[in-house]
Each structure stands twice: as structure tokens, then as C-alpha cells.
Nucleic acid binder design. Sequence first.
DNA 1: CCAACCCATACGTTTTCGGTATGCCAATGG
DNA 2: CCATTGGCATACCGAAAACGTATGGGTTGG
Lengths: 295, 295
Amino acid sequence: MDLRRLRYFVAVAEARSVGKAAERLRMAQPPLSVQIRKLEAEVGAPLFRRGTRGMDLTEAGQALLVRAGEALALAADGIEAARAVAAGSRGRISVGYMFVLANAMLPRLIPELRRSIPGVDLDFAELSASTREARLLDRSVTVALCMPAIHHPEIQVARIGAQPFMLAMPNRSPLARLSAVPMARLQGRPLIALPPPEQDPASSAVAALLRRHQIVMPIASRVETVHSAMSLVLAGEGLAILPACAKLGAPQGIVFRPLREASDSIDIAVCWRRDSQSPLIRTFLKCAEKVVARL
Amino acid sequence: MDLRRLRYFVAVAEARSVGKAAERLRMAQPPLSVQIRKLEAEVGAPLFRRGTRGMDLTEAGQALLVRAGEALALAADGIEAARAVAAGSRGRISVGYMFVLANAMLPRLIPELRRSIPGVDLDFAELSASTREARLLDRSVTVALCMPAIHHPEIQVARIGAQPFMLAMPNRSPLARLSAVPMARLQGRPLIALPPPEQDPASSAVAALLRRHQIVMPIASRVETVHSAMSLVLAGEGLAILPACAKLGAPQGIVFRPLREASDSIDIAVCWRRDSQSPLIRTFLKCAEKVVARL
DNA sequence: CCAACCCATACGTTTTCGGTATGCCAATGG
DNA sequence: CCATTGGCATACCGAAAACGTATGGGTTGG
């Protein structure tokens, strides 16, 4: 059962003549005649009534014609769809992002993506750092928005921006009256910390910052998300050192202040599998860079 | 775009390995590998990720796989459907019948057909004699139930039975008291006739019957259908000479009596195009014969 | 470091396809 | 009644595609 045969069959059925169909198919009449007879042999029944003025479908031929036409269309659509997916004009891109970046990036990123790649399904999932890495590796997400980047031999990283660390505190805190907080003022104050470095690399950047300035902050609580951290800060449980963009999702009553002697920042990066050959990743990267530039 | 390629592609995608797929396809591995690469060249993008432990679909490959599977199924279903239609286990049979036979045959014929050819669509249409012939010739009906048969070089006829002519009259008619009516008693009485012989060959049989017995019956009315004829008979407009089976659709108040000296009858026949090769016709014929035998 | 596994390439053989020439049949027209 | 025309079928040949065998190369696992 060959698709070429079916194509020839459809052509002959539509032209109601072998000769006319051969002309339209840019081939000679005899080989076309042969192919039709081979198809009939394969089916085991005549598909055409041969008249003196051309060919006419039998009932069996009519039954075949419908399916053959659909099969041809499906096959053509299939390779077209594959091409479109390969070219990035169709398909799906699944994005794993981290919680802090949701408020800062998604409201601008999603419309930007819809404009750039209108035929593509978007799929966003808020994932922890370790889950993002795992899902990138098993390909269940296409790209990850990370802060900081994932380091892994299979994973490619593009740095698209950085966020300075800022101190988050309740607005009734005495430190809130300063326009920038000297590092020394943090000494001994309770810290609301994120998961330890082995689970969340962002924490190691904070730890490094404090270590460099020889500041010790007792850990009042460890929380999973920046959102929880800010809630505890608001409750007066302690201070948090967070990327500046966390401000965008902060509740009323939290203020952010820069740290005077520290110019430390944390990278925002797009990460994907090295062997992902989807052209959508390039486009995604462009969009993400554009959004971060206006942060 | 070849269906064989798509079949190979689906096999490799399902086996996730060229070697396994080749084994299942009963062929060697290298040619299969070549075909897959040719398909990829045709699409213009890789469809598989080659790993060290087999092959894995890319996104483009996944997009193709869905359509390719459907296309294969449709093509296979198409030739299967064509075979089924040719074998008579599927398809459509369109039956043109004449009005008088409706009550006599259809209630038994339709269930009989449904039992014999369950996968076949039935399509019944009540048609005049000339329309039946025309629709047989242009193939818009497959078979016709006729009384009497259609005579035409393109049309094949099978006689499946006969109906004696009977006299239809109101039950208050004096003739109704006889168990059989002598031909002579018809002389001069008004006749309710069907369309003239050139339109309906049944009329010529009636005319011949009367001529042979030298009876003259003035034509009170010409009507299109047996049903109308019986209405007029009931109204006392005249008598009608009808096939015995018309009794089955007769209204209350009409009686049928045999004609004593006349053993004339009219053939019931199944007619179809000589070049209709549908095996359904044979089955239909069998069913119709069985029904007529029990009339 | 060797063996096993799996895909890719190379080459010769076979099958299949397409083109040209031609035959057959029916309908048409003088 | 014969010639012509139009349309499909058959025969044969050259070309293209596919298949099988042999082999290479890369990675994994012992």
C-alpha cells in the first residue's frame, strides 16, 4: 500500500480519465495505467469502470477515494507540521520559572512571547531550583528561568541580567529610615533565610556576601519561597536579603533598601538542554532579554 | 512523501530503536536507517535524537508521528473498505420500488435485507416506472422492484414471481357477491385506469386482457397510483383491475375478486444495470425471491 | 582495554518505476 | 462501410530506488 498509488488513484478519480490525470501529474499515460491496475490488484476488486469515454469510479472506488484523500491530506499535513515545529512557527514551549521572577517577568514576558511566536503553545510552571534542573534534563520543560544559573554539563546557560541584593524589612523598622543600610548594621540581627545552598544556589550568594563582610546573622527561620520570607519579615521575625525584583511581589508594609558597601548581585539566566535544537529557545531568549532590560 | 517511509518512521518511533524496528519489519537494519534519514532530509529537520541506547523522537518527530499514524490507519482502512464494498459486506444499496409493492413486500423485505447484509446502508425510494428506469441507468438506484419488468438493453431482469389480476370494487357492488367475476360482466362498466402504457407498462397488460376477451370498459379516470385508484373505486367512480397484492394496501370497503376466465398475471421482477458488479444485487435478489414466495 | 551494542556508510544486487512504441476497442463521421 | 479518432492496456527497455551484506565508528559496561 503505497502513498504514491493513492495519489495517482485520486488524480485519476478526479480527472475521470487516465490520460488527463497523467497530464496533470506530468507523466506519461501508460505507467499511470499500470499503477492503477496494480492498486486494483492489491485491493482485489476493480476501482473503476472503464468506459469508452474515460474512467468512472465503482462503489468500491468511491469508498476508497474518501479515505485516500484524507490519508494524503494527513500525510502532507504531518510533514508540514514537523517542518513548522522544527522552524519554530508551531509547537510547544514549556517554561520552568522560579517564584521570585513571577511578578517581575511573567506579566511582560507572556505577551511578548505571544507576539513573537503566535502559533506556539506556552506552558508555565513554577518550580524549585532542583526540580527545574531535573525537568530540564528529562525534557519535561524546554527552558528554565533561573536566579542564579543552573550549572550542569548537559545544560546551556545564557545570562540575561542581574539583580542587586537588597535588604527587606518592615517599614516600622528603624533601618527603614536610611536610604542605604551599612553592612555593619546587620550584625547579629535575625535573618529569614531561603533553603540551604545545596537546595537553592541563591542562598550561597547571600552566605558569601555576609561572610565577605564578616557579618553573622542568626537564622530565625528557613522558608521555601520568597513570598514566605516576606511574610515573616512583615511579621517582625527578622530581615531578608533578597534580589531587588522581589519588591514587585512584596506585600504592603515591606520596604527594600540597598546595602551600602555591597554591590553584590545575582544573575538572572535562561537555561536549556544543550541538545535541544528547538529554534523556539532562541526566540524565548530574545524575549526574556528584552523583558529583563526593562526591569 | 511515501507511505512506506511513514510506516518505517512509525515503527522506529514505537520501537525507539532502528534495530528493533527492523526486526519487527522483517528487514535488515541498514536500509531502515537509510529510509529514516531520507525522511528527515525530506522534512528538512531531524525527527530523532540519536542516543547511545537507541533513538528518541524530537518535537518535530512527535508532531509527525501523530499524523503519520492516522494517515496509515486511514489508508489501510480505505483499502479495507474498498474490499468490503466489493465483497458486499459493506456499502449502500439503493432500491427503487413501485407503489403497489410497498405494502406487499417492504415490511418483509427490509428486515430480511438487514439480516442478510447487516453492514450495508439501505435506501428505498418509491418511483414511477419511467423514473425507475432512468435512475437505474444513471446509477442513482442500484436495483428496482418492478411489475412488470423493465425492458432495456442495459438492464438485466430477474423474474421473481407473478401476481394474478383481480377486480377491485366497493363491497356494496352487486359483483362483490360473486366468488369470481366472469369477464362478460365487465362489459361497459367504467374503469379506473393507471397511466397509459407508454408511461406504465402495467396498463398495457390490462389493456391486452380486456382486448383478448373483447371487453370494452370506458375509462372513468386515469390516476397516478394504485392508492388513488382504490380511493376512486371506493367512491363508486368505477372498477379497477389490479394485481392481487394491491389488496394488502386496500382501504376498508374495497373487495377483490378473481376474474373467472382470465388467468392473466403480471410479473414481479428485480431489475439492475448489466454492468453493476455489486455482489449486493445477488443477495438482494435472494431476499426478494424469499419474500415473494411467501406472498 | 576489550567486548557488546547500536547506528551510519559503502557497495553490489534486485525490484520497481517511468518512458516510448504499439495494440485493441469503441464511437464517430464521411 | 471503412477510416479516423480518442482512450486505455500491453510490451519492452533504461533509470532510479530499495534491500541485503559487510564494515566502520562511537559509547557503555565489565
